[in-house]
Design a binder for these strands. Structure first.
Lengths: 222, 222
DNA sequence: GCCTTATCTTGTCAGTGTCAAGATTAGCTA
DNA sequence: TAGCTAATCTTGACACTGACAAGATAAGGC
């Protein structure tokens, strides 16, 4: 089971040995440097030092490559969730805040990858790797949300589901708008010393549940 | 100033007369039918019945064409805001709800156009038409939000801006996730008879301001 | 030591964006 | 009305891309 990966980078020239991983790594680098438009099969092949048709053997087509890369992103997002949960302790609101910050933090750390993960016209959702990774991230997300609000045993109430949807929509929308530079006006209107983190913190506080079972007041107008 | 537009569709064959508008209309039709990947300069030219290089004269390049189409989308979104404000009356929360429903309604009515409007790697934000249209829609959005919460004269407080950001993030994230079919799990968990509108209504209720100046309880867990 | 199979290359084709050059015509000026 | 200028549209070309077919190479099992 020894691949060419441990034989160094300059071994027998024909068979690469770990081309699939090299292609994904090259694709991610290109994605970081040039965004989604930089992701072409031929550019990835060039970056990995193989012929232009090599990627097709591992991923079928460009959609396949992008889907596998998006799957890597979802796996990392799920891992970020779990790490945040680990660090947040048991307090429900702390967990909720940690989840939101992990979501937005991931989007800010890898904006192009995050964008790719939701560019569904470029992805094949039926691809097993992507389907599994998406499900894993969704599961981690829902678990974090469920642990931060009381469960009701039977069929979930509308409010419970609405709360989960609101939290996900909030952090997702904020991430998208933020990395797309569409919050410039609002951020510029903030008092000095405040930034996107201030905004996120205030929003997450507002949607959290306080001691009396109601919502916090950070967003209350008074 | 008489163009060929009023001379019928089959006039002198060389000069079209209203090609720019025809190209945009053809592009929108292609977008509706085949999504963003269907938007190629040559396909648009074919649909409009002109040579493959004709669009470049009016839009420069593909990015220019997509940007102009996105600008049309933002203008329509701004118009939808204003129509919703008109119909909502003077009650702040009604206006806020109307704005949110207009936003999500637009995304559901023209999902591909809505997606294009936020695919910034395909757009040229510095193009005047797009810049102006984006600013107009943003202005309408902020106006709707501002009218639904007390103003404080001087520098806006963090909470005020956070509230605006939260509302925009909420409706934008919900729109994106909804038209991307990523809310299937949550929608499927709803009790029978409820759908995406139920969810949106509950979320907008929760973020609205009640009579006592606090937030409503639709999302409160109890 | 051979054979099957996976892996990778080479060659090719249609489709696309973009540019340059030319053809056609509208609108202005005299 | 005739001519000129500029806008509009076409034709042709080139490089790049995704995809496919066919062949070369080597790995691993028998």
């Amino acid at each position: 089971m020894s691949t060419a990966a441990d034989r160094g980078s300059r071994s027998s020239s024909y068979h690469h040995g770990a081309l699939r991983e090299s292609l994904l790594a090259a694709a991610e680098k290109l994605l970081e440097e040039g965004g989604i438009p930089a992701l072409t099969l031929r550019a990835v092949a060039r970056a990995a030092g193989v012929s232009h048709a090599a990627p097709a053997h591992h991923f079928g087509d460009l959609t396949g490559l992008l889907s596998e890369l998006a799957a890597v992103g979802f796996i990392r997002l799920a891992a970020a969730f779990e790490a945040a949960m680990e660090a947040a302790g048991d307090e429900p609101n702390a967990r909720l805040t940690a989840m939101g910050e992990a979501y937005v933090g991931f989007a800010r750390a890898c904006p192009s990858l995050f964008s790719l993960m939701f560019r569904s016209e470029r992805l094949d959702q039926s691809r097993p790797a992507l389907r599994d990774a998406t499900a894993a991230a969704g599961q981690a997300l829902r678990a974090a949300i469920a642990q931060a609000q009381p469960s009701e045993g039977g069929a979930e109430a509308v409010q419970t589901i609405a709360r989960a949807t609101a939290l996900w929509s909030l952090v997702h929308g904020f991430s998208v708008l933020l990395i797309d530079n569409r919050l410039g006006g609002l951020l510029g209107a903030l008092p000095p010393g405040n930034d996107a983190d201030t905004l996120l913190g205030a929003m997450l506080d507002a949607i959290s549940i306080d001691d009396r079972g109601g919502m916090n007041s950070a967003l209350r107008a008074e």
